[in-house]
Computed example of a mutant assay.
Amino acid sequence: MVELASVLAAQGKWQEGTGYLERVPPLLPKLSPASRTYSAQVLRQSAMQLQGGPQAAVGAPRGGGGQPAISDSLSRA
């Protein structure tokens, strides 16, 4: 679900990925530490993007829709 939300974010479809991300928190304890870390980064970045936080304007748009790809933002985290 996190990967799907990440792919949608890379396409500039941040809002469309929220339904998938809403299902993630109950699953976090079952994930490996690396997967939990990645999931937390995606959740954090998505929240900032949807709230219009400081990260929303960082970087050159590469993800389509005028938004930076989530992979671009996560690589800076």
Rank of each mutant, 00 (worst) to 15 (best):
G53Y: 06
P29C: 03
R36Q: 15
Q45G: 13
A40E: 12
K30S: 08
A40N: 10
A40M: 15
G52K: 07
R76Y: 15
G19C: 02
A40R: 12
P25S: 03
G63V: 00
R76D: 08
Q45H: 12
V2E: 06
S75W: 15
Q51I: 08
V2T: 10
S73V: 10
S35F: 07
T18A: 06
L21V: 01
S75Q: 13
I70L: 11
G63Q: 01
S71G: 10
Q15F: 12
A47D: 12
A69I: 07
E22L: 00
I70A: 02
R23D: 08
S6L: 11
G64K: 08
V58W: 00
A10I: 05
I70W: 05
S71L: 05
L27I: 00
K13P: 09
P25H: 08
L4D: 09
Q11E: 10
E3F: 01
L31Q: 04
E3N: 05
L8V: 04
L50A: 07
K30E: 09
S71C: 07
P33G: 10
M1S: 15
R62L: 08
L31S: 04
R44S: 15
V42M: 15
A57C: 01
E22V: 01
A69C: 13
T37P: 15
S39H: 14
A57W: 02
L74S: 11
Q11N: 13
G52P: 05
R23L: 00
D72N: 09
S71H: 13
P61A: 15
G65L: 02
S73K: 13
Q45C: 14
L21N: 02
L50Q: 03
L21C: 14
G12N: 06
S75K: 14
R23M: 01
Q15V: 11
Q11H: 13
P54F: 10
V2H: 07
P68M: 07
V7Q: 10
G53K: 06
Q11M: 15
A56T: 02
G65H: 03
G19A: 05
A56P: 09
S35V: 08
Q11P: 13
R62G: 09
W14I: 15
A9F: 14
G64L: 05
R23G: 06
W14N: 04
A56V: 00
L43G: 07
T18G: 02
G19H: 04
G12A: 09
P54E: 11
G19D: 05
R44T: 05
G59N: 06
P68R: 04
G64C: 06
T37A: 15
A56K: 10
G59C: 06
A57M: 11
P54V: 02
G64P: 13
L50K: 02
G19K: 03
S35H: 10
A34W: 09
G17W: 00
M1I: 09
L31F: 10
D72T: 02
E16S: 11
A5S: 03
S75E: 13
R76L: 12
Q15G: 07
Y38V: 09
V58C: 12
